[in-house]
Design a protein around this nucleic acid. Structure first.
Lengths: 209, 209, 209, 209
DNA sequence: TATGAATGAGCTTTCATTCAT
DNA sequence: GATGAATGAAAGCTCATTCAT
């Protein structure tokens, strides 16, 4: 498929982008191929032609998501970092990733459809790989405190924490009149990193000093 | 509707329960009314009869979820608690709530459909109420460290952290052979409470002592 | 059924009236029993109970219509009338009938559903009786000019002419700002009677004198 | 839509014809899309594809009807005609139109559904146009006798008279054993024209001479 | 008599996909 | 490569009617 993308016109890419936008806003099953084809400005039958069906687009998006996520995590491991620097760099990188690829990340982190076999399998496989990477990261800077069996608690907890703002963003912006700019996301990333490092007690101390 | 439930037969309740199970497993839009009617063992037209349409079931479930969530949060505020006791009690109560009403909670915490106007409005309203309760809780035991503007970060982060395990449960259980019993959830609740209180640094210290 | 009406409460009558109103405005098949029951303020099942089904209401209405129509026509024959008096009296009586029982007449004159066997049969029977009455009327005052085979042309033509205003009333009143009062209907009845008697040529002469 | 008809297959036309037949026999609301699709020998979803829904077919038919009716009326105005020739030509042309397009005309003249907004609007618009054309015709050959305010009486009366036979045809043919051939319709058209011109008095004189 | 929950067949419309061109 | 007409299944919903109470 990677090869075909070069041969095929940019219709392929337009479909992916349109779908990412639509799937991020509404559930996979509630987005129709007509809607996608419309937004992408391509003929309906191109979706089956390029992707073998609607699910194929989701697979493509998920593959991109997981590739991106894995490389972001791996690239965040810097040997010379202290534990605090590690976590802060990690959180900053993840937040950057989500900000620059919000749609794809919202889709990747959301509850994916379990009733589409291909998607389900991919999710199982990638979750498995994710856990391994999580272990590597734990090993890197948490070796002295994280028991193995807790990886599966702290890992998902950390990722869920980080994405939570983006899934609630629309609602939060209706209530609090906040401008979500670079400054905001620096604070966001740091606040959660410090929460993760020192908890609300340590966090408070630091902030109030 | 609360009154009607007593008058109406238990078909009403069977529909709610079947739907909760199905909506928890797959997205709202990918569950059909025929599937619901089958599982609930009722005639398909009873869904419109009782709920005015498929969306009505989701509204009923969401109302139950938010009622439950609000009362759980409010009931977790005990004046005599220390900060640590507060957080631990809160986390324990939320985990209990999720365990006893897993389906409803998975639905309530998940990305709800934005393209169903009634559901969207309810979500906006309830998110607003939720933020107010979050503020009350912050005020109760975080007054000395939580700046107001951080409620909207820590609140969603906390809830997302707590639900994260349940959304990943099926995948985790395929990888790690863990028995999810009372002991497990005591640990789970405590681990996250301590993470939230002291971060991974304080957490590790305590655990390793 | 005549007997039952006295025994039964006025629910029977309320159903007939509500249905007449609804059937007059919209086609029989597009009016639901719920709508009828609502408007008549009775329980849905009363319709089947009293009338044996939705079609039963239409049958009741049609029977009333044909009874009314037949007696109106018969009562319009006055031995001592001249031909002109006959026609004018006839037209006046029919217009009166339509004005006082507009809904029932609109239903009776409209295209009745052919796909409801009971209704179809009734329509065939009553049309047959109607033709006989038409013949009697022709015989009474048209004997010298109407060949038998023309009854089936002039009869329907006359009735259609007379009802035509009422079927178009809503549209006409949107275009011409006319008050439909007693005066209007005197003119209406007379205009058509004269048209029927003398045609537009005779009619014009008379009017312009 | 006129353009598309050429591009689209003859499925479009088959749907229109099948629907015209069915709508002419039974009310719009009592004809199902399955029935139409069956008769037209097309897939059921083609109805939404081509017409956007069942109502779209009716709109198409009504547009054809009104176009046809308007051009028939306009084409019946011949400058050199005497008043009698005018009316006779007009009636002959209308009867011809109804005979060659019976189904469409029966639909167009019948009580259209008021509860389909698009249809209702079209009916209002076209009735308005129809009245204007009626005025033109009155002006042409009735200028000396028809007061303006009577157009809305004589116009509908005339059209209703002419269509009346076709709506009663099935019932009439069950009672009178008449062959409805060219001769019959020549008589039919002439009888009504003379009725309209001279009334039953003049009519009888002429016929009996 | 009167109720309203329950039924099952039916409705129109939309779905993702295919195929001849 | 690309089109858009065509397909058949399934979607959510409404229908008139029935039945136990």
């Amino acid at each position: 498929m990677e090869n075909n993308k070069k041969i095929w016109g940019d219709a392929f890419e337009r479909i992916v982008e349109a779908s990412a936008e639509l799937f991020a806003e509404n559930a996979f099953h509630s987005v129709g191929v007509r809607e996608i084809a419309n937004k992408a400005n391509v003929n309906i039958s191109m979706i089956s032609y390029y992707f073998g069906g609607k699910a194929g687009i989701l697979i493509e998006i998920l593959n991109r998501f997981f590739d991106m996520q894995f490389s972001t995590l791996k690239n965040s491991i810097v040997e010379t970092d202290s534990k605090e620097e590690s976590i802060k760099r990690l959180f900053r990188n993840i937040v950057d990733m989500i900000r620059t690829h919000t749609n794809i990340c919202l889709i990747g982190f959301s509850d994916l459809p379990n009733n589409v076999p291909e998607v389900y399998e991919l999710k199982v496989n990638k979750t498995h790989q994710m856990m391994e990477i999580g272990n590597q990261i734990s090993t890197r800077f948490c070796i002295d405190f994280c028991k193995d069996e807790l990886t599966h608690i702290l890992g998902p907890a950390m990722m869920s924490m980080l994405i939570s703002h983006f899934t609630h963003k629309n609602f939060i912006s209706q209530i609090y009149k906040i401008e979500f700019d670079n400054n905001y996301y620096d604070t966001y990333s740091n606040t959660l990193a410090e929460l993760f490092l020192y908890g609300i007690t340590g966090f408070s101390t630091e902030k109030n000093q």
